[in-house]
């Protein structure tokens, strides 16, 4: 019983994963009026996320005005804005904005989710993940923008590949308890270095390799084989947006699918990287050990690419499956604005 209780705490948290800035809806409105009009084709968008930076709140995948493409060709380039920094790691996503509420409800959510998951699955097999690891976090938003009432219905999905049989969590502890003090110091400083360098600050998945001299280095995923050949201890690290002490955040799921499908590893250590006030905090960060059944891994490599696992991922709203709705009449309705300015 005790054992069961201990293992149960490891569930991957998916509480309150999305957040939409008001600017996103303003931009979507002008985009729809000026450019999209009745076009319902999917729009590539960029979400932003960052590791948890406060012990009491999780971070979210955030949509900002810059998440959307420019609404006219001569608008000053928003390229600058969509570039990442340490507090906004860009993540690719798709927005499906329907013209009516009826067509919003009529969307085949299950196949939409599957289609996005398929991209993740393909990227795992093609090696795209090693070039740009953020593709593991692909997301999908469906929306209906009622521009007469300035209200927006929307629903996020974060496709998660379902390992079957699922991965087992053997161990999960604060990172500070899993390293020697020398290692911990070295891991912290390596993380802070990675986070402060503009070329790596927005790369959410990485390797932590620790040599026999207790010196830790952060490396790109593509360097895995080099680390293994050098006999270093390797942890699979990721920016964990979750703050809960007993739960790794949602990016871990597809990460595990990647690790077992691409590298054929059955037993791995992962590192949920979290910060306090912008700096590595190994007391908040977690180290866990996961066992993944290899039957779905490389051993059946060729076939398994054809057999995509099941997918889950529609976001919950206040504990229930359902859409969200926001009214911005107060800030968008010109008659109300005129009244409040008078």
């Amino acid at each position: 019983e005790v054992l069961l209780e201990m293992l149960r705490v490891g569930g991957v948290s998916k509480i309150c994963m999305s957040s939409v800035d008001e600017g996103f809806w303003h931009k979507l409105s002008s985009l729809k009026l000026n450019k999209l009009r009745l076009d319902e084709s999917p729009i590539p968008i960029t979400g932003f996320y960052a590791p948890c930076s406060h012990p009491q709140v999780s971070n979210h995948l955030t949509l900002l005005a810059e998440s959307l493409p420019a609404d006219s060709d001569d608008e000053p380039s928003s390229l600058l804005a969509s570039q990442g920094n340490r507090n906004r790691c860009p993540v690719p996503g798709i927005l499906l904005n329907t013209n009516t509420l009826e067509s919003f409800y009529a969307l085949d959510k299950q196949s939409l989710l599957k289609a996005e998951a398929k991209k993740i699955w393909d990227d795992i097999y093609s090696g795209k993940v090693e070039e740009d690891s953020s593709v593991l976090l692909r997301f999908l938003v469906i929306s209906f923008a009622d521009l007469k009432k300035w209200s927006f219905h929307y629903w996020f999905a974060f496709p998660a590949l379902v390992l079957d049989p699922p991965a087992t969590l053997v161990n999960l502890k604060p990172a500070s308890q899993c390293f020697t003090s020398e290692e911990a110091e070295s891991v912290s400083s390596a993380c802070n270095k990675w986070r402060s360098k503009s070329s790596t600050a927005d790369i959410p998945f990485f390797l932590v390799s620790i040599g026999s001299n207790s010196i830790a280095t952060l490396r790109h995923l593509r360097e895995l084989e080099t680390c293994q050949n050098n006999g270093q201890k390797v942890l699979f690290g990721f920016y964990d947006p979750c703050h809960l002490p007993n739960n790794p955040g949602w990016p871990l799921r597809n990460y595990l699918a990647y690790i077992c499908s691409r590298w054929g590893l059955g037993k791995i250590h992962f590192f949920c990287y979290r910060e306090n006030r912008g700096f590595a905090d190994l007391g908040l960060s977690l180290v866990g050990e996961a066992e993944i059944s290899l039957s779905q891994g490389r051993s059946i490599g060729g076939r398994s690419h054809q057999n995509m696992p099941n997918v889950v991922g529609w976001e919950l709203n206040k504990g229930k499956r359902g859409l969200r709705c926001i009214s911005l009449a107060k800030t968008m309705d010109p008659t109300r604005l005129a009244v409040s300015a008078a």
Binding site: G11, V12, V162, N246
Partner: peptide, 29 residues
Amino acid sequence: GEYEEADNLIETDPATLQTTYLVANEPDD
């Protein structure tokens, strides 16, 4: 209680039935 139930309404995630597995479920905390 609602989370897992709701979760299984549309999506089948065999993993959620097994609390010992590392899956997407709401923390018990």
